[in-house]
Computed example of a mutant assay.
Amino acid sequence: MATRTSNDLELVHLTKRYGQTVAVNDVSHIFPPASYICLLGPSGCGKSSTLRMIAGHETVSDGAILLDGADISHLPPARRGTAMMFQSYALFPHLSVKDNVAFSLKMKGVDKETRHARAMKLLDLVAMDHLADRLPAQLSGGQQQRVALARALVTEPRVLLLDEPLSALDPFLRIRMRAELKRLQRELGITFVHVTHGQDEALALADECVVMNNAVIEQAGPPRDVWSRPRTEFVARFMGGHNVIGWDGARYAIRADEVSIAAIGLPAAVTGVEYQGDRVAVTTKTEAGEEIVSLVPEDRFFAAPINPGETVHLGWDQGRMHRLEA
């Protein structure tokens, strides 16, 4: 667990139950301040329930949520010091871009001139000030997302919560918006907590990856540590890029790009070949029934192509094998 400071967002034995179903099970974790956090895991792992409890959109069954040392778990969403950007953006269709961004300030009784000035400052930050008078229906998906982001930031939250914000965008725009989110987080110097099921998205954005499975945190740490040194078989498989094999009575992860097609080695039958641009994924099954993927550089593969049904030999440096704890 991270070292505690005065500005942390902290979960303390946090639990969420829906009847007999436990969605989040006794989770304790400190999110370092002014960092980009990605909560990731498969559907139903508890990541969205965790985010919604932090936001105040779900009640806490047990435990506490601390921000700057104060328990915010029983405060209404508007008094928590957090703001949430929803997956659907949830813009008001009858309001202009500027009035959408200023809406929460209007509800707080802020005068029109002040709230519009604040809205325009945020729209400038997300490069949408030139479209301030348009309606949401006149914007592209990426533009609507920028407006939703400005609206979430207008209240100057200490923590911004993002619920799969890139899932509705096409792949090209998704990559572009990743860079924009990271830039904004660095410029604003606040904590972003971003829920995603995309491993690539988390690796690209996060200062800390928090991998959830079966209602608990399975592993948390810097992206490179989580990806290259998975603690469990689940994390190794979920984060991708690894094979999990049995060896001398233990379970090990070996990166797919460390497995080579060799003249001698472990015999395996080729079950699939997938071209991936700069490399080719060759999926095999060993005599023991284990599936092992080898990522072969594209030029090397096409110099000696391999087809499904053929038998190959697999080799790797045993020093690159990573022993799993579970």
Rank of each mutant, 00 (worst) to 15 (best):
Y275D: 15
P223F: 00
E287D: 15
G241F: 10
F234K: 07
W227H: 15
P157L: 01
W247N: 12
M177D: 01
I217A: 05
F172Q: 15
Q219H: 12
V282F: 08
T286Q: 08
T286W: 03
I261N: 08
V226Y: 03
I245S: 12
T271P: 08
I254L: 14
P157R: 04
R231L: 12
F234Q: 06
F234V: 05
P165H: 09
P165R: 09
L166P: 09
R231A: 13
R183I: 03
V159R: 07
G241D: 06
P222K: 12
Q276P: 08
G221C: 11
D225Y: 09
V226E: 00
T196G: 05
G272R: 13
P157W: 00
I261D: 02
I254E: 02
D170V: 10
G240Q: 10
A281Q: 08
D200C: 04
L295N: 14
G265V: 00
G272D: 14
F238C: 09
V216I: 13
V211E: 00
F238K: 08
G272S: 15
P267Q: 06
I175N: 11
K285Y: 00
I264R: 13
E180N: 09
V259S: 08
V195M: 02
I190D: 01
V259N: 05
G221T: 09
T155C: 11
L181P: 00
V273H: 07
T232K: 05
R251H: 15
I254F: 08
G249K: 14
D257W: 05
R224V: 10
L184N: 01
W227A: 13
A268E: 02
I264Y: 12
A281V: 04
V154R: 11
E164D: 13
A263C: 03
G265H: 02
A220T: 08
H242Q: 10
P171H: 07
R231H: 13
P267E: 01
L173N: 07
R176L: 05
A281H: 11
E233P: 02
F192C: 06
T271G: 10
D257V: 04
V270T: 06
E187C: 11
A253M: 01
A281W: 03
A256C: 15
D207T: 10
W247L: 14
T271Q: 13
M239L: 15
F172W: 04
V193H: 06
K182N: 04
Q185L: 06
G265F: 02
R237D: 07
C209P: 01
V273F: 06
P230T: 07
H197L: 03
I254V: 15
Q199S: 09
I245A: 12
D170L: 10
H197N: 08
R176S: 12
G277V: 02
L161S: 03
M239A: 07
E233W: 05
Q276G: 12
M177N: 04
P222I: 00
I264N: 11
N243F: 03
A206W: 01
P267M: 04
E208F: 11
C209H: 00
E180M: 06
I264L: 10
T155G: 04
L203C: 07
T283H: 14
V211P: 05
V280Y: 06
